[in-house]
């Protein structure tokens, strides 16, 4: 533990996120007081009144550690990520969005103008008769107003700066955050670059019984009565457990919900969604072997949203990173 006079300086920031990760930090409840014994908060827009100017005034690496949540959607997100990188010794990607782009990353299946049309014009609940959309620059009362640019694609934090540690999850469970804080306060951190969670998969922590090892039909969870003891995949429900990093105590499958993959893949997996296709293909029984593909379409028909299913949280960090154009000069990550 650090001496009181020599407290850790801690920062936290939200980029393109829902705010849940900031709540998750507060979810430590009274344990956050232990943290404050050994640390000073030096920047945390969600909870305190620091401004970007304060951040700019800090020396290089003045912050010991910063919890960065949210993906990189706007030029502001990117600018602050770079600024925080400069001012922070240990930069932590906190939560799925900073780790892999998260749910906002699914917008990478549409281009910027489609996103704007949906959000500002076409949504049934949107009332915008003048079709106003945010502009980077606009005239107002004789002056000029500026807004951050909306980037073409969502990136994860690692996509713009070097990340020292990742605490995964949507949001990270309090035990995981607590464990990470203990590692910091006890000066017991793993090598930089580590994802501070399990090294196995969710299946490894799941108590459901797995024996059938084959699927002949996909079901969505609301369509069938789920057996509480048996593996969800065995019941035809797509559960991302086999390709998702452990560390959550299989909390979704324990609650009768399939794993959505929020911890991202284990270290050696290149692309979480592709890896899930590998696993699924191994247990999929389409007709008899040999006549395997006759009923392929029927089986796949019950897979209405493959990207949303296999890449819920990892799309922005996948090999393609989002929708591509056949014959196009798509930009690589």
């Amino acid at each position: 533990m650090q001496e009181k006079e020599n407290k850790l300086k801690v920062g936290a920031y939200w980029a393109s996120s829902c705010g849940g990760c900031d709540v998750a930090l507060l979810g430590l409840h009274e344990r956050i007081l232990d943290l404050l014994e050994g640390a000073d908060i030096a920047f945390w827009p969600a909870a305190t009144d620091f401004k970007y100017e304060d951040l700019k005034s800090y020396k290089r690496n003045e912050l010991d550690i910063t919890f960065f949540n949210g993906g990189i959607r706007t030029s502001e997100n990117e600018e602050i990520a770079k600024l925080l990188r400069e001012k922070t010794d240990l930069l932590v990607a906190y939560g799925s969005c900073a780790h892999q782009g998260g749910i906002p990353g699914l917008a990478n299946m549409s281009d910027k103008s489609t996103v704007f049309d949906t959000v500002y014009r076409d949504n049934p609940s949107t009332y915008n008769p003048e079709g106003t959309v945010p502009l980077e620059r606009s005239e107002f009362n004789g002056g000029e107003l500026e807004l951050p640019a909306f980037n073409e694609r969502v990136k994860n934090l690692e996509g713009v700066v070097k990340v020292d540690y990742t605490v995964p999850g949507c949001p990270p469970p309090p035990e995981l955050t607590q464990n990470f804080l203990d590692l910091i306060l006890n000066d017991d951190l793993p090598p930089r670059g580590s994802v501070v969670a399990g090294e196995k998969t969710v299946c490894d922590e799941c108590n459901r019984e797995w024996n059938k090892k084959s699927i002949d039909e996909f079901h969505r969870p609301q369509e069938i009565e789920i057996d509480l003891e048996k593996c969800l995949l065995d019941q035809g429900i797509i559960c991302m457990g086999p390709v998702t990093r452990s560390g959550c105590d299989a909390s979704c499958p324990e609650m009768n919900l399939p794993c959505k993959g929020c911890f991202g893949p284990p270290s050696k997996v290149d692309d979480q969604g592709a890896e899930m296709l590998n696993s699924l293909a191994s247990i999929l029984q389409i007709g008899e072997e040999g006549k395997a593909l006759e009923s392929e379409e029927n089986v796949l028909a019950n897979l209405p949203d493959p990207i949303g299913t296999f890449y819920s949280f990892s799309l922005a960090n996948s090999i393609f990173g989002g929708k591509v154009e056949d014959g196009g000069n798509n930009e690589r990550k």
Partner: peptide, 13 residues
Amino acid sequence: YKAWRRVALLKHV
């Protein structure tokens, strides 16, 4: 057979 099913899923995605 595994490859066969993988390719079917892959094409879909």
